[in-house]
């Protein structure tokens, strides 16, 4: 791994972590557990397209671990890890056949995966299947937030195209 790659990974991890911490301060409008803007996913998406899936995975793992340590809450780790894992899996799957003009769609699908995973964890924690009634709310939130983060990543990847990062 080159120095440039290591440095890029480090910088992206720092950015993802910062976004994650800041976002935790923003109250969400919808009264459903687990809904959030998911802005740090922008970094994950960018990393997949300008580095590699493995590097993006490293950044994600670091962000989840450090994020839950800094937030000081072990529940956050559980939800973050579950959401992050499933959304990363979906990114890996879909980025293989969606082109760069469709990163927004990768974002939407990863957001849906993320929210679905969080509901599943919440259902396990609460020992109740009634949680799944929140699914339509989560799908709506995921489509909107996923499109936003996916589009942001798409524009970022495009503008990084002729720089030395790509």
């Amino acid at each position: 791994m080159s120095i440039k790659r290591i440095a890029t990974i480090a910088a992206l991890t720092a950015i993802a972590l910062t976004i994650f911490m800041l976002e935790a301060q923003i109250p969400v409008i919808i009264a459903v557990p687990g809904v959030k803007l998911g802005l740090s996913n922008i970094v994950t998406l960018i990393a997949v397209y300008i580095l590699s899936k493995r590097d993006a995975g490293i950044i994600l793992a670091l962000r989840i671990m450090l994020g839950s340590i800094f937030a000081g809450n072990s529940m956050i780790f559980l939800y973050s890890a579950a959401g992050g894992l499933l959304s990363f899996a979906s990114v890996c799957l879909t980025s293989s056949f969606l082109r760069e003009k469709q990163i927004w769609a990768v974002g939407v699908l990863s957001a849906i995966a993320h929210n679905a995973a969080q509901i599943a964890v919440a259902a396990l924690v609460m020992d109740s299947l009634a949680l799944f009634w929140y699914l339509p709310w989560l799908i709506i939130a995921a489509i909107i937030t996923g499109a936003f983060t996916g589009l942001s990543a798409q524009f970022a990847v495009k503008s990084l195209k002729n720089t030395r990062l790509r």
Partner: peptide, 22 residues
């Protein structure tokens, strides 16, 4: 390859179904 337009239609459809469900 899936076109952008097809994706938009799919997601809007999903959105509509969820809204109706709610």
């Amino acid at each position: 390859k899936i076109s952008n337009r097809a994706l938009i239609i799919i997601f809007l459809g999903l959105l509509a179904v969820s809204a109706v469900w709610i």
